[in-house]
Nucleic acid binder design. Structure first.
Length: 845
RNA sequence: GGCGGCUUGGCGGAAUUGGUAGACGCGCUCGACUCAAAAUCGAGUUCUAACGAGUGUGGGUUCGAGUCCCACAGCCGCUACCA
């Protein structure tokens, strides 16, 4: 089937143009330091989320975003911008390592092969990337600067006064001790309970646990020494500075919810001689606290548990330890818990309340302890009912709702000095009371946790850290990049020791110090790659000041447009913002944010309307589409499917449709001879356009396509080009100048076909090097316009009238119309609505 | 449970500030070309025989609502006992 004659010879000319763009470096982007760099030219930085080069190759989701940015980039180029539109690979990652475990082959080999395949596929789609700027996060030179940035973070602390990162050398100068400095570094070591998978040989992030468990791997909870990044210090800035960005509201909200700011108070309860602090957002309900709950892992539990309850408590703790957070949540909505036998004293009224442990309280949030107010908290209410604990009303609902389980604001009752106050005021008054009596304080709590930054994998950046005498030390910058040595085998050892600990010679240094053997997570490389594109060959800095200054913008975010999938709404986009802010604080970059405008492309579903997946057998391979219909057809179809941001199903028939459109453009230009060769159509003539209607369509197309590209509304731009092509097809004469203007407009969408036609009809300089045509207002004007005539808002007739017909003229014409008369005869005229150039509505009754 | 998004012909989708609903494409029907078919070109295609009705459902505002307001339903994503 694949060898039938194609309506236009894309298999011949597409690779030829790709070759030419490559050898001539058509899309090379000059930057500061280059001989041909023009600093006066405005810049435009349009960025794709770079792919993980999997063994499966590109899927059709990749070219969706990539084509969109390519069209925009080519368009901006044609409009005089110096466009930075780069591509690279996020090439560290578990699959290459899993393959290494199976075969013993070094992951670098698999990775290189996958990158080569990705590059081939990307080039076959004709994207206008500057390939000289291509980067891979696994390149030693790239690793070097990832490690260098890590060291900047490691050598910084968060200064609360200035709300910024500062070098720890400032603390050294102030005489801080080594321990004190280590306790405030933005990169620090902590013993944290983590999810450890023995057969994968690594810890997993919370969000990875279910995925790997479902694949049959075992996962257990273990306290391990881990590197953490103190992202929580940036929580407030990460929320506040979202407002300066041109991102979809949904994504901003997602990030805000992820960071999860809540305002409330810490309240100190006492249990015997111990003080247990709880966090609450409802200090106004303190009088209604009838029991206390500690997380099962809370450190005080063993100490406060009574002898009678010891066995029950320990059994309960054990059963919780094996459950994942998800088990504790979704799968176990049913409340469970055990009484510890201890009682706590409520600081506001001295009441003794029982202390329980229950897995609905998490150690990781707040203080790991809560005061339970069952009357006004759903979870506490459920728990109290199950275990017959007292429920005391302290809020009077504002409506006639029942007070049991009423969680909305209301009026304080049974609450001593708070009685009669609305909730908001009661909260404030209680916090004042707690602070002045030294029983608690105002507290802002975030859901965001510090970032667990170490992995026990092999295929990641090693930490540029050595250990000596129990302290960690940065290695010298001149020793970067620090690369992992090849291993004899990549199988996990079955212990939580990182894989790199197998490389004993590498680990043990002559001076007696040992290397850190953890590696960085895959997120590290993607946190700053957009910076490296600006200055990829720099050997003395991660980005030169000149390149940074030129490619950055006067807006808070550096990159003008960033396009990628929603799956990165929180993690990648939050981590990259965090790193950028640290670099900003330290003076290495001049904008506070990395990405000014963000657009999420919608998922492409399979032909069956389901998510594409191997198991469903509905996956579309872009290589097949290119072979059958050509790269231009694939590009065009992906853009014609619907709005970029929308979820939409694939339809192979639709690819045929756009392919037919391209064939029609081809046939406007050429006639096919008997032998299958193409000759320029005699309809193409180098004459002024005398066809006013055709001229108008061409200029409307120039205008609309330009406007639509700016709006990223590619589907409507294509439909306009189809209209224009149909007009050319039907015209007796195709004026050369207008046809070339059309080809120029088509070029960003279908670069190969438009270049080929243009070259064959003798157009001269490559379209990719041409400027975007301007449209002529005069050509757009119609002398007569079809006016809509309504009676009582219903369409009754359409009349051709002069474009500037006034109300009187339109009215006169309307009352001539039989169709109008039919609906107005015998009625009283009440009102006339007239919209110039558009419509006349006769209100009669 | 919470948050977000979506709902327009047989299908993907168009519709400025509220102003011709269904652009463009797919599919389908008919015609031309052909011995024939494919391809191509041309015509038609929301439903209804018609009157009319029509943008998930019910209400509202307006001369006029796919678009604005209120209530409801259904799908899809993300998140999950966050105190």
């Amino acid at each position: 089937m694949s060898d039938v004659r194609k309506p236009f010879p894309f298999r011949e000319f597409e690779p030829r143009w790709q070759q030419r763009w490559e050898t001539e470096k058509t899309f090379r982007t000059p930057g500061p330091g280059d001989a041909d760099f023009d600093p006066a030219k405005p810049k435009y930085y349009v960025l794709d989320m770079f792919p993980y080069p999997s063994g499966a190759g590109l899927h059709v989701g990749h070219p969706e975003g990539y084509t969109a940015t390519d069209i925009l980039g080519r368009f901006k180029r044609m409009n005089g911008f110096n466009v930075l539109h780069p591509m690279g690979y996020d090439s560290f990652g578990l699959p290459a390592e899993q393959y290494a475990i199976k075969t013993g082959q070094h992951p670098a080999i698999t990775t290189a092969a996958n990158i080569e395949n990705f590059r081939r596929q990307l080039k076959a789609l004709g994207f206008g990337y500057d390939w000289d700027r291509e980067i891979a996060t696994t390149d030693p030179e790239y690793v070097r600067w990832t490690q260098w940035i890590f060291l900047q973070i490691y050598n910084s602390y968060f200064c609360e006064e200035t709300n910024k990162a500062r070098p720890v050398s400032e603390l050294e100068a102030k005489g801080w001790s080594r321990e004190d400095i280590d306790s405030v570094r933005l990169a620090f070591v902590a013993d944290t309970p983590v999810w450890w998978s023995p057969d994968l040989g690594t810890v997993l992030a919370n969000e990875e646990v279910e995925e790997w468990k479902s694949k049959g791997h075992t996962v257990e909870r273990r306290p391990l020494r881990q590197w953490m990044l103190r992202i929580t210090k940036y929580a407030q800035r990460l929320i506040d500075e979202l407002d300066t960005l041109d991102w979809p509201d949904g994504i901003k909200l997602l990030q805000k919810n992820w960071i999860g700011r809540s305002e409330g108070a810490e309240v100190d309860f006492t249990i015997g001689d111990k003080t247990v602090t709880v966090f609450t957002t409802r200090p106004d309900t303190l009088f209604g606290a009838t029991y206390m709950v500690l997380a099962p892992e809370h450190p005080f539990v063993p100490e406060i548990t009574s002898a009678e309850q010891k066995d029950a408590v320990e059994a309960y703790q054990k059963s919780c330890a094996s459950k994942s957070d998800l088990d504790r949540g979704d799968l176990n909505k049913d409340k469970s818990g055990v009484f510890t036998g201890a009682y706590a004293t409520n600081p506001v009224n001295g009441e003794q309340i029982p202390v329980w442990i229950a897995d609905y309280v998490m150690m990781g949030y707040g203080t790991g302890a809560i005061m339970a107010v069952p009357a006004h908290d759903e979870r506490d209410f459920e728990f109290a009912n199950k275990f017959n604990l007292p429920i005391v009303q302290v809020v009077q609902p504002t409506n006639d709702a029942a007070w049991q389980g009423y969680t909305d604001p209301g009026t304080a009752v049974n609450s001593g000095f708070l009685d009669g106050l609305p909730t908001a005021e009661a909260k404030a008054k209680m916090i004042d009371w707690l602070e002045s009596n030294n029983k608690g304080k105002r507290r802002i709590q975030y859901k965001l946790r510090d970032w667990l930054f170490s992995r026990q994998r092999y295929w990641g950046e090693p930490f540029p850290i050595v250990w000596k005498d129990g302290y960690h030390h940065a290695i010298s910058e001149s020793d970067l990049p620090l690369l992992a040595p090849p291993l004899d085998d990549y199988k996990p050892s079955g212990t939580p020791d990182p894989l790199l600990s197998k490389a004993t010679e590498w680990v043990h240094l002559p001076d007696g110090s040992v290397r850190e053997t953890n590696t960085m997570p895959q997120w590290a490389g993607s946190c700053w790659y957009y910076l490296r594109y600006c200055d990829p060959g720099n050997t003395s800095r991660f980005i030169s000041n000149e390149a940074e200054a030129y490619w950055t913008s006067d807006k808070p975010g550096m990159v003008d447009l960033y396009v990628g999938g929603t799956e990165h709404a929180v993690l990648h986009l939050l981590y990259a913002r965090f790193w950028h802010k640290v670099l900003f604080d330290l003076g290495h970059v001049t904008t506070p944010e990395p990405f000014q405008k963000l657009v999420n492309q919608g998922l492409i579903l399979g032909e069956d309307g389901q998510k594409m997946s191997k198991s469903r057998g509905n996956v579309v391979n872009p290589d097949d589409v290119v072979r059958e219909y050509g790269a231009d057809a694939l590009r065009l179809y992906e853009m014609f499917m619907g709005p970029l941001e929308q979820v939409k199903p694939w339809q192979m028939k639709g690819v045929e449709g756009v392919s037919r459109f391209l064939a029609r453009v081809w046939r406007v230009a050429f006639e096919e001879a008997q032998d299958g060769s193409f000759t320029v159509s005699p309809k193409i003539q180098d004459v002024p356009c005398s066809n006013k209607e055709l001229l108008r369509v061409v200029h409307e197309t120039i205008k609309k396509v330009g406007e639509d590209i700016e709006k990223l509304s590619f589907n409507t731009a294509i439909s306009q080009m189809m209209i224009c092509t149909n007009a050319f097809t039907q015209a007796e004469v195709v004026p050369l100048k207008e046809f070339i203007q059309f080809l120029t407009v088509l070029n960003p969408f279908a670069p190969h076909l438009s270049e080929e036609i243009h070259a064959r009809i003798g157009g001269g300089v490559m379209l990719s090097e041409q400027t975007w045509p301007s449209y002529d207002e005069a050509a757009l004007v119609r002398s007569e316009i079809e006016f809509i005539i309504q009676v009582n808002g219903k369409l009754r007739d359409r009349l051709m009238l002069s474009k500037d017909a006034d109300e009187e003229a339109a009215k006169a014409a309307a009352f001539e119309s039989a169709k109008v008369k039919e609906h107005t005869d015998g009625k009283t005229l009440r009102k006339i609505i007239f919209v110039p150039g558009k419509l006349l509505n006769i209100v009669a009754g």
